[in-house]
């Protein structure tokens, strides 16, 4: 909801602390979550995430949450989906070029970041383009998986095909690992469309081989 969203960026510092606290708790749960299986957890957690973040931030479930690096203002609400804003079209008073009745998401973001403890340091980091395969999946689980994998340093779990992106956006990888994920994605976390395409490719291959 728009009004709630604006409230959240105005109180970015409080949300930053809540996020930091929650992350610590969940990170310590990584072994347990791994035991249950991230694939099994994906759907229920994504549903909770969508409801809560949807209410608070108008979250679009991009699956690669960078709220903490965007002053707690969700960049997917920018009509241009800009992840490193604001663009050059901002209207007088800080309103959106495309939707003049809406405050510019990135003006709110920088204002929010200024009030946060690490806000400015993080908003200055160059964010990579969104991986559209991950739409609809849980960012929370992805953050824990990525940070967990980094701690374990179990390089075998990391996908080498994505390492160039991680190198090109090294700082984002360090601070927002979910925006530059390297750990293996559970099947349930891939966008439904992508999964469907994969299964249809598999079934065609199977038919051809038969």
């Amino acid at each position: 909801m728009y009004a709630v969203r604006l409230f959240c960026t105005r109180h970015a510092r409080a949300f930053e602390s809540v996020y930091k606290g929650l992350e610590k708790v969940f990170l310590s749960l990584h072994p347990l979550l791994k035991g249950i299986g991230y694939n099994r957890l994906e759907r229920p957690v994504a549903m909770i995430e969508q409801m809560s973040k949807g209410f608070l931030f108008d979250c679009k479930m991009c699956g690669q949450c960078v709220l903490s690096s965007a002053g707690m203002s969700c960049p997917m609400n920018c009509p241009k989906n800009i992840r490193n804003g604001p663009c050059g079209g901002v209207r007088d008073g800080g309103f959106c070029e495309v939707r003049p009745e809406m405050r510019c998401v990135w003006v709110e973001a920088w204002n929010g970041a200024k009030t946060m403890q690490n806000g400015l340091e993080r908003i200055r980091v160059v964010q990579p383009p969104v991986n559209r395969e991950l739409k609809g999946s849980s960012s929370w689980l992805r953050i824990i998986r990525e940070k967990g994998a980094m701690k374990e340093a179990s390089k075998r779990q990391l996908d080498p095909a994505k390492s160039e992106l991680a190198q090109a956006f090294a700082k984002a990888r360090k601070l927002e690992p979910a925006a530059v994920p390297l750990a293996k994605e559970p099947v349930a976390a891939l966008a439904e469309q992508a999964v469907k395409e994969q299964t249809s490719v598999h079934s065609t291959q199977e038919t051809t081989s038969q």
Binding site: K80, R83, G85, C87, V126
Partner: peptide, 20 residues
């Protein structure tokens, strides 16, 4: 509207193509 990149992620991508 596509907006797959934004100007800044595009810059970093082209720099990576050129330098790496």
């Amino acid at each position: 509207a596509v907006f797959d990149f934004d100007a800044i992620s595009l810059l970093r991508t082209l720099k990576t193509m050129r330098n790496e």
